[in-house]
């Protein structure tokens, strides 16, 4: 049963991911990426990581919607009605992409994972959340705090880059 769901949602994620680069409508492209990520969230649920799955489904909905508005803003042909080709070096990219899939899959298939495994049973979902909380605010607290600081830094940097310089200051800087 678990195998079926992993396969199903994995396949859905891959199909939607392919659709991202196959359509020329930017809205469809962004929504395809959104549903690819949602399928991944469902895949996490199938892998019994309930908290991560729900978190993925929640975060990606907003994230990809914001992506959609930027794509519509910045593309020359957001509706995809003009049929513009927005790609280059297709052959090279195709070869690189397929090569990467083959290589990584081969590594995955030929590694002896059993020797690395320590436990095959996942805890119940509420147990998991408790453990994750203890991990986040216990042993891994420093890492977690670093992530928080990184977010703050990125917020400030992003605002500084994106905000338009007011006209009266612009003459000083140039």
């Amino acid at each position: 049963m678990q195998t079926f769901f992993i396969g199903f949602f994995g396949l859905a994620a891959i199909v939607f991911a392919v659709a991202v680069f196959r359509t020329s409508s930017m809205m469809r492209s962004a929504l395809a990426l959104l549903f690819s990520q949602t399928a991944l969230g469902a895949l996490f649920l199938a892998l019994q990581a309930e908290f991560l799955g729900v978190l993925q489904i929640m975060m990606m909905a907003t994230e990809m919607s914001i992506m959609a508005i930027f794509m519509v803003m910045f593309m020359m042909d957001p509706g995809g009605l003009g049929g513009m080709d927005m790609s280059h070096q297709k052959r090279l990219s195709m070869i690189a992409g397929l090569g990467a899939v083959m290589l990584v899959s081969a590594i995955a298939a030929y590694t002896r994972w059993q020797e690395l495994a320590s436990l095959s049973q996942a805890a119940a979902a509420d147990e998991q959340i408790r453990h994750l909380g203890r991990e986040l605010l216990g042993r891994s607290m420093l890492v977690f705090e670093t992530a928080g600081i990184t977010i703050l830094t990125a917020m400030i940097a992003t605002t500084a880059v994106a905000v338009k310089v007011p006209a009266e200051n612009a003459s000083h800087e140039s």
Binding site: F51, A61, A125
Partner: peptide, 25 residues
Amino acid sequence: DLATGGLFINAALAYVLVALLMAGW
């Protein structure tokens, strides 16, 4: 009665946005 109920409702509400963007576009 999900163990992540309080988070799940946020996830469901996020798709209201997706639906409205689709309805808009």
